[in-house]
Design a protein around this nucleic acid. Structure first.
Length: 491
RNA sequence: GGCGCUAUCGUCUAAGGGUUAGGACGAAGCCCUCUCAAGGCUUAAAUACGGGUUCGAAUCCCGUUAGCGCUACCA
């Protein structure tokens, strides 16, 4: 059997980080078994539809490095949400992959269900339903549709919905690949709506039809769908279609144990991008919420290739997991350290520019290897390198004149260092170090305090990348100028 | 309320009847060191509770408690 999975987000807003994990698992599972993962747009809720959301969804997925084997074509995206920015879609043999473009198919199946006696038309008004619910609540009954229209043979020409006839006394057993066996002795769902008055299907109908039509073998989805799984099973059964294998994924939680939301921090993928997280780190981190390699494995850093090779549904946890921002940051730092310096420099540039810095490629290239182990997030680079890209710097003089260092001594040190550095022939890290150490030694002071003076004189602050490398990156001329400027400042 | 899911350090998790209950993040300390980091070493920190089953339970079963989800013409 070919393993085929699908990620079916709703274009009702930005892509949530929990959704990213679902998408990750879909891709991991499919590719683990040399199958296909597809992207399907679930835009059946016309009221909550957000213009531009499909575009954003696809862009986010692409940025984070989640690539699907089948999905909406550029034409399909255009029809549903306007032309894609880069004009590129995904495509595939079983489209369209946008549900609003498949309404005829849902209509056809719902008619089939009606003729089979498994579904019926219902013209109950929202008011009537509300009243029913009120009465049920008052009588402390189970709330839900009464089944009033079950045998009324509502005329198809009237505005109506189509409801599924939930069979009485049916026991349902779901062999969930994550949760294990789940049983329902009786079904509490009360004749749910399949097709809405506006002609669009509800999730239940659309997902069953599409999963069948698109030859989906494994349905991986959030935990919250578990309660409605019996309906889907019943639907497959009524249609005489084999049901796919299900796996209900545990939720991604906030620190308080509730579903991750804005209150806890960034939740949309785009926010993580803006905060300076690396796609590689995000994916790796997400994989470890709800999944682990097991077998005593202690490795935690996994590439997509490794994850693909190791992933299995059996190792997916069934308890929810808290999204730990601290650990993500740590992991992001780990990934930043493995980047080629040139690559890192490129990723840094947008953030430096956003901070208003006029980036000089040569300087950035020289300093990058030295800030690499000092970053957790990309924007962390800003305060570390901004001294390189400013004409004028503010100096933290109080920090310079601490622990027995007075203005007179500091002034003399700066003067001597300026002279020494100005005299250096081959201006590189080791020559700079030699020159500065010589000055420090001659002054009779400890090297540390001397370097602090120079550090602040040249960069303005007490925390910087390593001194000699910072000076080398800045260049001889500017360094000497800044030292002399400090001399006059102290005079 | 009903139905369902879940329960190991603060957090992510390992250990699928027999371990001093392991690792990672975070925290603390030490080493290294021109600041800050990175790195190395070390420490504190957990089987929700109660019953069974068993020679033996974190692990299997039942119950309790707690948390979460669903209970829409939303997904």
């Amino acid at each position: 059997m070919t393993v085929r999975t699908r990620f079916a987000p709703s274009p009702t807003g930005m892509l949530h980080i929990g959704g990213v994990r679902t998408a990750l698992f879909e891709i991991l599972l499919a590719h683990r078994h040399a199958g296909q993962a597809l992207l399907r747009i679930d835009d059946t809720d016309r009221e909550r539809l957000v213009p531009g959301a499909i575009q954003a969804l696809i862009e986010d997925l692409r940025w984070v490095g989640l690539h699907f084997d089948e999905g909406p074509t550029a034409e399909e995206i255009t029809k549903a949400d306007g032309p894609p920015k880069d004009g590129v879609g995904i495509g595939g043999p079983l489209g369209p992959y946008v549900q609003s473009l498949r309404v005829d198919r849902y209509k056809e199946i719902s008619e089939k269900l009606i003729s089979l006696g498994a579904a019926y038309r219902c013209d109950c008004t929202p008011e009537r339903l509300a009243q029913e619910r009120e009465e049920q609540t008052a009588r402390k009954e189970q709330v839900g549709y009464s089944g009033y229209c079950r045998d009324r043979n509502v005329n198809a020409s009237l505005p109506h919905v189509v409801r599924f006839r939930i069979p009485e006394e049916r026991q349902i057993i779901l062999d969930d690949k994550v949760k294990g066996e789940v049983r329902w002795e009786k079904i509490i769902l009360r004749d749910p709506v399949l097709l809405k008055t506006d002609g669009f299907p509800t999730y239940h109908l659309a997902t069953v039809v599409d999963d069948h039509d698109m030859l989906i073998s494994h349905v991986l989805r959030a935990d919250e769908w578990l309660s409605t799984a019996p309906l889907h099973l019943l639907l497959f059964e009524a249609l005489g279609w084999p049901a796919p294998i299900f796996g209900h994924l545990p939720p991604v939680l906030g620190t308080d144990g509730k579903k991750l939301s804005k209150r806890h921090g960034a939740t949309f993928l785009s926010a993580f991008r803006e905060d300076g997280y690396l796609p590689e780190a995000i994916l790796n981190f997400l994989a470890l919420i709800g999944w682990s390699p097991g077998e005593g494995e202690e490795q935690e850093i996994f590439s997509m290739a490794e994850l693909t090779q190791r992933f299995s549904l059996e190792r997916v946890n069934n308890a929810g997991g808290v999204f730990n921002y601290d650990k993500l940051k740590w992991m992001n730092g780990m990934y930043i350290r493995t980047l080629q310096p040139a690559d890192l420099a490129q990723r840094l540039k947008p953030f430096l520019a956003a901070a208003g810095l006029n980036v000089d490629d040569g300087k950035l290239e020289r300093i990058t290897p030295h800030i690499q182990q000092r970053l957790e997030l990309l924007p962390d680079a800003v305060p570390l390198v901004d001294f390189l890209f400013k004409d004028e710097i503010d100096r933290d003089m109080p920090a310079m004149l601490k622990k027995g260092m007075d203005a007179v001594k500091a002034r003399e040190l700066c003067r001597q260092c300026a002279d020494a550095l100005a005299a250096v022939q081959h201006f590189d890290e080791s020559a700079i170090e030699a020159a500065l150490r010589l000055v420090a030694e001659a002054s009779g002071a400890q090297a540390g305090p001397v370097f602090t003076v120079v550090r602040i004189a040249v960069t303005g602050k007490k925390v910087t990348p390593p001194l000699f490398e910072s000076i080398y990156s800045l260049g001889q001329e500017q360094t000497v100028a800044r030292l002399r400027q400090t001399v006059s400042l102290l005079g």
